[in-house]
Every structure is written in C-alpha cells, then in structure tokens.
C-alpha cells in the first residue's frame, strides 16, 4: 500500500489479489460457498482511536457488494459503521475485526468522492497463481475534512480480514489557500513596480 500527500489531494495505491467483483470461496470446513469482497479503506485522521467506529472516522468505499454501505465505489464517508462482512469460521487468522462500511441510518455521512481505478495490474500480473489488481485513488482533502497539518493511520483489508495492511503516521498538510500564494506573488509584483517607477522618475 502506498500513500502520498499532493496539494489538494491525498493519493493512495494498493496492490491486491482480491478482484473488484469479489471471489467465491468454498470453505473446507462446511463445504459452503462464501463470497469474499474487498474491504473498504479505513482512515483514522485525528490520531485518536476513540473517535469513529473502531477508531476510523473516515472510510472510502471500494466495493459495490450489497452487504456494504449504499453508494458508489470511491464515495467517502464520515463516521461510518464498520463490520466484518465474512463470518468468523472462514477467518481463523484474522488481523482486524472489521472490513467494510455498512448501512446504518444513524451513521455514515457521504462527504465526497475519490477518483478511483481498480483494475488488473499489468506490471505484476499474478502472484502464487492468483491475478493481481491495483487500486489507485485520488481523494480530495476537502472530503476528508483536512484543513490543517496532521498524521493519519490507514488500514486496507479484505472481507475475511485474514490479511491487512496498515500505514501509520502518514503526514498530511492543508490545501494551500489562494491568499497564501497570492500575497507573496503580489508582494513581488508590487516591489518590482515600485522600484521600476522610482527608477523611471529618477531617469526622467
């Protein structure tokens, strides 16, 4: 998993063997078939594990599965409810106890939308015989309520949660405002104009 701060956006990329549509898995314990799906990207932006369900107050939707919160892939939600979608019996080695945002009338407010590509990863087509996919996204800081400096913890997993990746202490900066760029620029132009006039007066 990769993360980068880029002005008005935060960029994420994830390489995974989970296909966007999910994966039918027959568990050897009961011979039932379970549909595993990508987990949603969880973000703890306030470095406070007590805010938000499971400590993650923002989430980015990465699946269209009907068991998860209603919306489109790429939708950003604030204060969603997190749940582990796949049953525990197929997750004997799970690393976290939640995977996806779920519908709950009292939780989960959509705050924006991230541009997302979730596609077969041509640079590394397969691993251990399973095809690889890449999820690349550009998330507006506005959708994540970022108006200052801070650090974030990010968590990516799959619905069975047997695998999870975490980036801790990712530093982000606020979006540069127009005034902070315009003032130095105006100063430069003003000084240039001032000295030019002064020189013209002297020469005149």
């Amino acid at each position: 998993m990769y993360a980068a701060d880029g002005g008005a956006y935060i960029y994420f990329a994830i390489i995974t063997s989970m296909p966007p549509e999910g994966y039918n898995y027959t568990w050897w314990g009961d011979w039932n078939q379970y549909h595993l799906i990508p987990g949603d990207l969880a973000l703890n932006l306030d470095a406070d594990s007590s805010t938000g369900d499971c400590g993650y107050e923002y989430g980015i939707k990465l699946t269209n599965d009907s068991r998860t919160i209603e919306g489109e892939i790429g939708d950003v939600f604030y204060m969603p409810d997190w749940e582990k979608i796949s049953p525990d019996n197929i997750s004997q080695n799970y690393m976290v106890n939640f995977s996806n945002m779920v519908d709950n009338s009292s939780a989960g407010t959509k705050t924006g939308h991230a541009e997302i590509v979730y596609t077969h990863y041509t640079d590394w087509p397969e691993d251990n015989g399973a095809p690889n996919y890449v999820i690349e996204m550009r998330v507006p800081k506005e959708a994540l309520g970022i108006y200052g400096n801070g650090t974030a913890d990010l968590l990516a997993t799959v619905s069975c949660t047997n695998d999870a990746l975490m980036i801790e202490n990712f530093s982000y900066t606020p979006v540069p405002e127009f005034a902070t760029i315009a003032v130095p620029l105006a100063m430069t132009l003003g000084l240039f104009y001032y000295y030019r006039r002064k020189r013209q007066k002297r020469e005149g």
Binding site: D5, I15, V117, M137
Partner: peptide, 13 residues
C-alpha cells in the same frame, strides 16, 4: 507541498 506529489490515476504505478 502542493506540487510535490501528483500521480495519474490509471492503474500504473
């Protein structure tokens, strides 16, 4: 910081 990172969202890293 604003121009430090910019990536094309195309699935190629």
């Amino acid at each position: 910081p604003a121009v430090a990172a910019e990536y094309t969202i195309d699935g190629d890293l």
